[in-house]
Design a protein around this nucleic acid. Structure first.
Lengths: 254, 254
DNA sequence: TTTAAATACGCAAAAACACGCATAAAAATA
DNA sequence: TATTTTTATGCGTGTTTTTGCGTATTTAAA
């Protein structure tokens, strides 16, 4: 086995499990622990993983606090919302999840389009209160500060009583094998309940999120119907996504 | 489990619950309490949490400006909230209703007071998301635009499952004979359900609202426990209010 | 003040690690 | 192809890190 090949396999394993120990890798790849340690140190230097005592962890993409992001909104995320807007029809009941891209979507709903919008994010509720034609349903529950959204059984109970035509969510991490993931158990529960009630689930986000995993799987990949992303998706990933029957829509990079 | 992984999980738990004990963590992560203490001390040194006897708390220094809110639009309403703040005790579960005075109350909750706050107003939810010690419960339901609050059976169902120590509301209209009133049927329903669950209901508002009626009665006057108002209450009205056993607290007119 | 819980400290065992070195494998060059 | 050069690997040795336990001390609440 070649070194580069081994590095590739290590990163793959890491992507799958989120964590990996030197001992396990040594056994799996049938090399000495020293070799594995050298590999991990090298990959750590290259910022491809987070080297820790005993093994390695996936790089925690720093999710800055929501309020930090509020102060520095990223207008480049607006490009994802045009295809989303094109799917809307009068009278639909839709979910707009929390997150920056979702908020752009909420803020740009056509003024003459009557919709029922369900959301657990108070910022989006507030944005939509200005809208003349939209009826807003606020999801109840305990507010989960890191994601600026409601979670818990109250939210889930409420979701179970509604059926949605469309659900729009941002992509935290998506992977063909390991599905749609987030980093918080509580968040995953609510998102799963939301998708369960949806005729069609649409994810929006940059292409580099399409080969990522995080700790908690929300749903397997095939439960997603539509992904809106930008240019740069690896050809093999694009192929396997489309093989699952997911519609992949690519917008120009700005 | 790797050490770094454990640190991550501790921070996650802390993020969720706001506080955490060494004993609970030791059980949850299946390691000795010594290990947990070493973890907490380390994370405390790194300023990732606040180490206290028995466990750890979330850092609260990231919101140093929580008190610099005294530049609110209508400072005259600030005078109603001081007596309200004096009633608060650590650990209580309270309702802060929608409205300008209520919002002012929410914005001025002491930063070091741990409370559970229930509200149906997204603006207040948003204000409180920056509070380091308050757990926020958002009432679900259909947003009622004129009052910027949730209404309907979802909200009422949710309310029925919680008991409140204190409920704070602004005064739309209060009358000794005709009770506490508002102009919308939907709003009255929700407010009634809220008061039903409260040990103590406190109204805040100027004295001229104390001899007013509106279309829909929420509850009869004697269901209210405490009214905070300003100078100028007619003597006979004051007498009949106090006759009903309602505590009438009068603050100086500025 | 008393008392139980939480903590700090030292110690020892186990695990993970770094380093040097000899050898094997791969790559480059003649 | 043969030979040299470079790189990668495994092993032995010594070091560092992590962890749990026993004991003494501190803390917080009754």
């Amino acid at each position: 086995m070649l070194l580069a090949e081994r590095h590739q396999l290590i990163l793959e394993q890491l992507n799958i499990h989120g964590r990996i120990t030197s001992v396990d890798l040594a056994k799996l790849l049938a090399v000495s622990e020293d070799t594995i340690r050298r590999d991990l140190n090298k990959l750590g230097e290259l910022k491809l993983l987070r080297r820790v005592h005993g093994g390695a962890l996936v790089l925690q993409e720093d999710t800055p606090d929501y309020f930090d992001r509020l102060n520095s909104p990223d207008p480049s995320k607006k490009r994802f919302i045009q295809p989303a807007l094109a799917m809307l029809e009068a009278g639909q009941t839709i979910v707009i999840d929390s997150g920056e891209t979702c908020r752009y979507l909420a803020q740009n709903l056509p003024a003459n389009l009557p919709l029922t919008v369900v959301t657990g994010c108070p910022l989006i509720v507030q944005d939509l209160m200005q809208h003349p034609q939209v009826q807003v349903i606020q999801l109840g529950g305990r507010m989960f500060k890191p994601a600026m959204r409601t979670t818990g059984s109250s939210a889930i109970e409420m979701l179970k009583q509604i059926r949605f035509d469309l659900v729009f969510m941002g992509i935290c991490a998506f992977h063909v094998k390991h599905g749609f993931c987030v980093n918080y158990f509580e968040e995953a529960e609510v998102l799963r309940a939301t998708i369960e009630q949806a005729d069609r689930t649409i994810l929006m986000g940059p292409h580099d999120k399409l080969d990522k995993t995080m700790t908690y799987q929300i749903v397997p990949a095939q439960k997603i119907h539509h992904i809106i992303t930008d240019q740069g998706v690896r050809a093999d990933i694009q192929a396997s996504i489309e093989e699952l029957g997911i519609e992949l829509e690519i917008v120009p990079n700005k």
